[in-house]
């Protein structure tokens, strides 16, 4: 997509998000984020972590709908606390749980969002709407009421509204959750295409989404960054630590007690288990190529799961 938005081009001094010692403490003392620091360059940046890890808190702060307790976050140079209006002008946000007006058509929805983005010139607004409709492949549904669209289609409308201002920062929270495989791949591909000149922060539970589109990854756990780097760097954390072995069912419990299990497959009455550890003391243990899931679970387990 051509980045032709004067809002974005003049606003941004550098297309990146810089987070310094960001902390969010909720009422009652629950800490959502512990002094998180990150620098997110242009490209697709995936946030991985279990529920309650702080992903949504971080994204909500960047989307200016939640105030941090302390620390700073700057989006393309704009402070999310003091320059909310400027941040919103270059922000596209697709939350996980969002709604659309069911009585409006796809085009009308985007027309309204265009007004909210201050695209008051109807010609400019129309041009940008046409562009995003084409980009998210909603052409044949442009005059269909949103209430009549499937979940996947609505998700595309949600993405279209987030793209309408050609944002410098696009935040998408679990965009493929609940979608069928074909739609998931379509959304994933679209995000991969959109990365480049803008920052895309993608929160997901799905490791395969990350593997498919992310340039960089951060793993959050209990409000802290466990890892931050590229996908190959994340894989490198478990390089030489992944093992596969075929075992008898009665051996499983003992192995699970000692090692971190990242996969299990049943084959002809026997079980092939996948473990992450510095060393596995078992005659059948064979080294295996690491996948992102191994690295994620290893990081979640503190990055040192090894009973040996």
């Amino acid at each position: 997509m051509a980045v032709s938005n004067p809002q974005g081009s003049q606003a941004a001094t550098s297309t990146q998000v810089v987070i310094e010692k960001l902390r969010k403490e909720y009422e009652g003392g629950v800490v959502g984020l512990h002094e998180v620091s990150l620098t997110i360059p242009a490209g697709v940046f995936a946030l991985l972590g279990p529920n309650g890890a702080g992903k949504s808190t971080l994204m909500s702060i960047l989307a200016t709908i939640l105030e941090p307790t302390s620390g700073t976050a700057r989006v393309c140079g704009f402070d999310v606390r003091r320059q909310k209006h400027e941040v919103r002008s270059i922000l596209g946000y697709l939350p996980q749980d969002f709604g659309l007006y069911p009585a409006l058509t796809t085009y009308e929805t985007l027309d309204y969002v265009g007004l909210l983005y201050n695209l008051s010139d109807p010609v400019v607004r129309r041009r940008q709407i046409e562009e995003v409709i084409e980009r998210v492949n909603l052409g044949e549904f442009r005059n269909r009421r949103v209430g009549e669209l499937s979940g996947g289609m609505r998700q595309r409308v949600g993405l279209a509204q987030a793209l309408l201002n050609f944002p410098k920062l696009l935040i998408v929270d679990e965009p493929t959750a609940g979608l069928d495989p074909a739609e998931r791949i379509r959304i994933r591909s679209l995000l991969a295409e959109l990365g480049g000149e803008r920052v895309i922060i993608l929160s997901t539970h799905l490791i395969e989404d990350v593997q498919a589109v992310a340039d960089r990854v951060a793993v959050l756990h209990e409000g802290r960054i466990r890892f931050e780097g590229t996908v190959p760097e994340m894989l490198a954390r478990v390089e030489g630590r992944v093992w596969e072995l075929v075992v008898q069912p009665q051996e499983l419990a003992a192995l699970r007690d000692r090692y971190l299990e990242t996969g299990l497959r049943r084959e002809d009455g026997r079980i092939q288990i996948r473990l992450v550890a510095d060393h596995v003391e078992h005659p059948n243990a064979k080294p295996a190529d690491p996948v992102l899931e191994d690295a994620y679970l290893w990081l979640m387990n503190g990055g040192s799961a090894n009973g040996a």
């Binding site: 004067p6 809002q7 270059i90």
Partner: peptide, 26 residues
Amino acid sequence: MEPEASVSYGQPSALSLAGFEARSAL
């Protein structure tokens, strides 16, 4: 250096937003 404020295409008034919503609601 503090970045410049974003260039706006012209903010729609509350009335024009309301007009859009009302037309849709009709």
